[in-house]
Nucleic acid binder design. Sequence first.
DNA 1: TTCCTTTATTGCAATATTACGATAAAGATA
DNA 2: TATCTTTATCGTAATATTGCAATAAAGGAA
Lengths: 112, 112
Amino acid sequence: MGITRSDLFSKQQNGLANMAKAIAHPARIAILQHLKKANSCICGDLVDELGLAQATISQHLKELKTAGLIQGTVEGTSVCYCIHPGNWKKFREQFAGFFTDVNLDSNTSCCS
Amino acid sequence: MGITRSDLFSKQQNGLANMAKAIAHPARIAILQHLKKANSCICGDLVDELGLAQATISQHLKELKTAGLIQGTVEGTSVCYCIHPGNWKKFREQFAGFFTDVNLDSNTSCCS
DNA sequence: TTCCTTTATTGCAATATTACGATAAAGATA
DNA sequence: TATCTTTATCGTAATATTGCAATAAAGGAA
Protein backbone atom coordinates (compact mmCIF):
# COMPACT_ATOMS: atom_id res chain seq x y z
CA MET A 1 0.00 0.00 0.00
CA GLY A 2 2.95 2.31 0.45
CA ILE A 3 2.14 2.80 4.10
CA THR A 4 4.37 1.12 6.66
CA ARG A 5 2.75 -0.86 9.46
CA SER A 6 4.83 0.78 12.21
CA ASP A 7 2.24 -0.33 14.76
CA LEU A 8 3.48 -3.89 14.41
CA PHE A 9 7.03 -3.05 15.46
CA SER A 10 8.84 -1.75 18.50
CA LYS A 11 9.88 1.83 19.02
CA GLN A 12 13.48 0.74 18.67
CA GLN A 13 12.82 -1.01 15.39
CA ASN A 14 10.90 1.91 13.95
CA GLY A 15 13.56 4.29 15.17
CA LEU A 16 16.40 2.39 13.60
CA ALA A 17 14.48 2.04 10.35
CA ASN A 18 13.92 5.80 10.32
CA MET A 19 17.60 6.43 10.95
CA ALA A 20 18.44 4.23 8.00
CA LYS A 21 15.84 5.99 5.89
CA ALA A 22 17.45 9.33 6.69
CA ILE A 23 20.64 8.28 4.92
CA ALA A 24 19.00 6.06 2.32
CA HIS A 25 19.60 8.49 -0.51
CA PRO A 26 22.88 9.26 -2.28
CA ALA A 27 22.24 13.01 -2.18
CA ARG A 28 21.90 12.93 1.60
CA ILE A 29 25.02 10.78 1.87
CA ALA A 30 26.85 13.30 -0.32
CA ILE A 31 25.60 16.25 1.73
CA LEU A 32 26.73 14.65 4.97
CA GLN A 33 30.11 13.70 3.53
CA HIS A 34 30.57 17.23 2.30
CA LEU A 35 29.60 18.78 5.61
CA LYS A 36 31.90 16.41 7.43
CA LYS A 37 34.84 17.05 5.14
CA ALA A 38 34.36 20.80 5.06
CA ASN A 39 34.25 20.97 8.84
CA SER A 40 33.46 24.60 8.38
CA CYS A 41 29.80 24.60 7.58
CA ILE A 42 28.73 24.88 4.02
CA CYS A 43 25.62 26.76 3.10
CA GLY A 44 24.24 27.19 -0.38
CA ASP A 45 27.25 25.90 -2.27
CA LEU A 46 25.83 22.43 -1.78
CA VAL A 47 23.62 23.36 -4.69
CA ASP A 48 26.69 23.92 -6.86
CA GLU A 49 28.48 20.91 -5.45
CA LEU A 50 25.77 18.36 -6.19
CA GLY A 51 23.97 18.66 -9.48
CA LEU A 52 20.47 18.88 -8.07
CA ALA A 53 18.06 21.79 -8.13
CA GLN A 54 18.00 24.18 -5.19
CA ALA A 55 14.53 23.09 -4.16
CA THR A 56 15.64 19.47 -4.11
CA ILE A 57 18.70 20.19 -1.98
CA SER A 58 16.59 22.20 0.41
CA GLN A 59 14.21 19.30 0.73
CA HIS A 60 17.00 16.86 1.52
CA LEU A 61 18.47 19.27 4.06
CA LYS A 62 15.09 19.45 5.72
CA GLU A 63 14.93 15.68 6.02
CA LEU A 64 18.40 15.54 7.49
CA LYS A 65 17.45 18.24 9.96
CA THR A 66 14.26 16.42 10.90
CA ALA A 67 16.30 13.27 11.46
CA GLY A 68 18.55 15.30 13.72
CA LEU A 69 21.71 14.68 11.74
CA ILE A 70 22.36 18.32 10.92
CA GLN A 71 21.57 21.75 12.29
CA GLY A 72 21.27 25.08 10.52
CA THR A 73 22.14 28.59 11.54
CA VAL A 74 20.88 31.64 9.71
CA GLU A 75 23.76 33.89 8.72
CA GLY A 76 22.35 37.02 7.22
CA THR A 77 20.72 36.01 4.01
CA SER A 78 22.20 32.53 3.85
CA VAL A 79 22.01 29.48 6.09
CA CYS A 80 24.95 27.62 7.50
CA TYR A 81 24.52 23.90 7.99
CA CYS A 82 26.66 21.55 9.96
CA ILE A 83 26.57 18.09 11.42
CA HIS A 84 24.95 17.68 14.82
CA PRO A 85 27.79 16.01 16.74
CA GLY A 86 25.63 14.49 19.45
CA ASN A 87 23.13 12.86 17.17
CA TRP A 88 25.86 11.86 14.76
CA LYS A 89 27.35 9.83 17.57
CA LYS A 90 23.95 8.37 18.44
CA PHE A 91 23.52 7.22 14.87
CA ARG A 92 26.93 5.59 14.93
CA GLU A 93 26.13 3.80 18.17
CA GLN A 94 22.75 2.61 16.94
CA PHE A 95 24.16 1.13 13.76
CA ALA A 96 27.16 -0.33 15.54
CA GLY A 97 24.81 -1.93 18.05
CA PHE A 98 22.70 -3.39 15.31
CA PHE A 99 25.54 -4.79 13.26
CA THR A 100 27.33 -6.60 16.07
CA ASP A 101 28.91 -9.90 15.17
CA VAL A 102 26.80 -12.88 14.33
CA ASN A 103 27.98 -16.01 16.06
CA LEU A 104 26.39 -18.67 13.99
CA ASP A 105 27.42 -22.04 15.26
CA SER A 106 27.14 -24.82 12.75
CA ASN A 107 25.07 -26.98 15.10
CA THR A 108 21.97 -24.86 15.24
CA SER A 109 22.45 -23.11 11.94
CA CYS A 110 21.37 -24.56 8.63
CA CYS A 111 23.73 -22.32 6.73
CA SER A 112 27.12 -23.93 6.46
CA MET B 1 9.53 12.21 -9.71
CA GLY B 2 10.26 9.31 -7.37
CA ILE B 3 13.33 8.40 -9.39
CA THR B 4 16.73 8.91 -7.79
CA ARG B 5 19.43 10.69 -9.79
CA SER B 6 22.09 8.05 -9.07
CA ASP B 7 24.07 9.27 -12.05
CA LEU B 8 25.01 12.37 -10.09
CA PHE B 9 26.69 10.43 -7.30
CA SER B 10 29.63 8.12 -6.82
CA LYS B 11 29.45 4.37 -6.70
CA GLN B 12 30.34 4.52 -3.04
CA GLN B 13 27.57 6.99 -2.28
CA ASN B 14 24.97 5.02 -4.18
CA GLY B 15 26.18 1.83 -2.57
CA LEU B 16 25.93 3.17 0.94
CA ALA B 17 22.51 4.64 0.23
CA ASN B 18 21.35 1.25 -1.02
CA MET B 19 22.72 -0.45 2.08
CA ALA B 20 20.76 1.98 4.21
CA LYS B 21 17.67 1.42 2.10
CA ALA B 22 17.95 -2.31 2.69
CA ILE B 23 17.41 -1.82 6.42
CA ALA B 24 15.15 1.23 6.15
CA HIS B 25 12.03 -0.67 7.12
CA PRO B 26 11.03 -1.91 10.58
CA ALA B 27 9.97 -5.29 9.21
CA ARG B 28 13.40 -5.87 7.74
CA ILE B 29 15.03 -4.73 10.96
CA ALA B 30 12.82 -7.15 12.85
CA ILE B 31 13.61 -10.00 10.49
CA LEU B 32 17.35 -9.44 10.85
CA GLN B 33 17.12 -9.15 14.62
CA HIS B 34 15.15 -12.36 14.75
CA LEU B 35 17.59 -14.22 12.52
CA LYS B 36 20.49 -12.94 14.55
CA LYS B 37 18.94 -13.87 17.88
CA ALA B 38 17.74 -17.26 16.72
CA ASN B 39 21.19 -18.12 15.40
CA SER B 40 19.61 -21.28 14.12
CA CYS B 41 17.91 -20.18 10.99
CA ILE B 42 14.26 -19.46 11.04
CA CYS B 43 12.11 -20.24 8.08
CA GLY B 44 8.41 -19.59 7.78
CA ASP B 45 7.78 -18.78 11.41
CA LEU B 46 8.76 -15.21 10.60
CA VAL B 47 5.24 -14.95 9.29
CA ASP B 48 3.88 -15.88 12.72
CA GLU B 49 6.43 -13.75 14.53
CA LEU B 50 5.71 -10.51 12.72
CA GLY B 51 2.12 -9.66 12.01
CA LEU B 52 2.47 -9.25 8.28
CA ALA B 53 1.04 -11.36 5.49
CA GLN B 54 3.13 -14.16 4.06
CA ALA B 55 3.47 -12.42 0.73
CA THR B 56 4.77 -9.31 2.44
CA ILE B 57 7.35 -11.21 4.47
CA SER B 58 8.49 -13.05 1.39
CA GLN B 59 8.95 -9.73 -0.37
CA HIS B 60 11.05 -8.30 2.46
CA LEU B 61 13.14 -11.47 2.57
CA LYS B 62 13.77 -11.10 -1.13
CA GLU B 63 15.00 -7.54 -0.66
CA LEU B 64 17.30 -8.59 2.14
CA LYS B 65 18.63 -11.40 -0.01
CA THR B 66 19.17 -9.02 -2.94
CA ALA B 67 21.06 -6.68 -0.63
CA GLY B 68 23.20 -9.64 0.37
CA LEU B 69 22.32 -9.48 4.07
CA ILE B 70 20.77 -12.93 4.21
CA GLN B 71 20.94 -16.22 2.40
CA GLY B 72 18.35 -18.95 2.02
CA THR B 73 18.60 -22.70 1.83
CA VAL B 74 15.77 -24.88 0.66
CA GLU B 75 14.98 -27.58 3.21
CA GLY B 76 12.41 -29.87 1.74
CA THR B 77 9.25 -27.85 1.43
CA SER B 78 10.42 -24.93 3.53
CA VAL B 79 13.26 -22.43 3.24
CA CYS B 80 15.80 -21.72 5.91
CA TYR B 81 17.14 -18.20 6.05
CA CYS B 82 20.14 -16.90 7.89
CA ILE B 83 22.39 -13.91 8.02
CA HIS B 84 25.23 -13.76 5.54
CA PRO B 85 28.18 -13.30 7.90
CA GLY B 86 30.57 -11.85 5.34
CA ASN B 87 28.23 -9.21 4.03
CA TRP B 88 26.94 -8.50 7.51
CA LYS B 89 30.48 -7.53 8.42
CA LYS B 90 30.78 -5.41 5.28
CA PHE B 91 27.66 -3.52 6.22
CA ARG B 92 29.02 -2.90 9.69
CA GLU B 93 32.29 -1.61 8.26
CA GLN B 94 30.57 0.66 5.77
CA PHE B 95 28.35 2.27 8.39
CA ALA B 96 31.19 2.54 10.88
CA GLY B 97 33.35 4.14 8.24
CA PHE B 98 30.67 6.64 7.38
CA PHE B 99 29.86 7.62 10.94
CA THR B 100 33.40 8.29 12.09
CA ASP B 101 33.85 11.17 14.48
CA VAL B 102 33.33 14.71 13.36
CA ASN B 103 36.03 17.04 14.55
CA LEU B 104 34.39 20.38 14.20
CA ASP B 105 36.71 23.05 15.45
CA SER B 106 35.03 26.22 16.51
CA ASN B 107 37.25 28.37 14.28
CA THR B 108 36.04 27.14 10.95
CA SER B 109 32.62 26.03 12.08
CA CYS B 110 29.65 28.33 12.35
CA CYS B 111 27.89 25.95 14.71
CA SER B 112 28.95 26.63 18.24
C1' DT C 1 -2.09 -40.27 -7.83
C1' DT C 2 -4.38 -36.73 -4.78
C1' DC C 3 -4.01 -33.60 -0.99
C1' DC C 4 -1.39 -30.63 2.09
C1' DT C 5 2.26 -27.50 3.43
C1' DT C 6 5.40 -23.98 2.44
C1' DT C 7 7.24 -20.30 -0.22
C1' DA C 8 7.48 -17.32 -4.41
C1' DT C 9 5.22 -14.56 -7.69
C1' DT C 10 1.61 -11.85 -9.86
C1' DG C 11 -1.50 -8.20 -9.94
C1' DC C 12 -3.45 -4.69 -8.05
C1' DA C 13 -4.40 -0.35 -4.79
C1' DA C 14 -2.75 3.05 -1.78
C1' DT C 15 0.75 5.79 0.07
C1' DA C 16 5.60 7.66 -0.04
C1' DT C 17 9.49 9.59 -2.21
C1' DT C 18 12.00 12.26 -5.48
C1' DA C 19 12.62 16.08 -8.47
C1' DC C 20 11.88 20.58 -10.14
C1' DG C 21 9.69 25.03 -11.62
C1' DA C 22 7.47 28.77 -9.62
C1' DT C 23 7.02 31.59 -5.96
C1' DA C 24 7.26 33.37 -1.28
C1' DA C 25 10.03 35.10 2.58
C1' DA C 26 13.83 37.51 4.60
C1' DG C 27 17.74 40.00 4.73
C1' DA C 28 21.47 42.69 2.29
C1' DT C 29 22.61 46.37 -0.87
C1' DA C 30 22.23 50.21 -4.00
C1' DT D 1 12.41 52.39 -1.73
C1' DA D 2 13.62 49.04 -5.25
C1' DT D 3 16.48 45.23 -6.32
C1' DC D 4 19.30 41.33 -5.60
C1' DT D 5 20.64 37.08 -3.19
C1' DT D 6 19.62 33.14 -0.66
C1' DT D 7 16.67 29.70 1.15
C1' DA D 8 12.06 27.61 2.10
C1' DT D 9 7.72 26.21 0.56
C1' DC D 10 4.02 25.01 -2.72
C1' DG D 11 2.21 22.52 -6.44
C1' DT D 12 2.66 18.97 -9.51
C1' DA D 13 4.32 14.91 -12.09
C1' DA D 14 6.59 10.65 -12.17
C1' DT D 15 8.42 6.75 -10.02
C1' DA D 16 9.08 3.73 -5.84
C1' DT D 17 7.53 1.27 -1.94
C1' DT D 18 4.41 -1.28 0.87
C1' DG D 19 0.80 -4.54 1.66
C1' DC D 20 -2.18 -8.19 0.60
C1' DA D 21 -5.32 -11.50 -1.87
C1' DA D 22 -4.95 -14.83 -5.24
C1' DT D 23 -2.38 -18.08 -7.35
C1' DA D 24 1.56 -20.70 -8.91
C1' DA D 25 5.39 -23.84 -7.89
C1' DA D 26 7.65 -27.54 -5.51
C1' DG D 27 7.95 -31.17 -2.24
C1' DG D 28 6.20 -34.24 1.27
C1' DA D 29 2.40 -37.29 2.98
C1' DA D 30 -1.57 -40.11 2.54
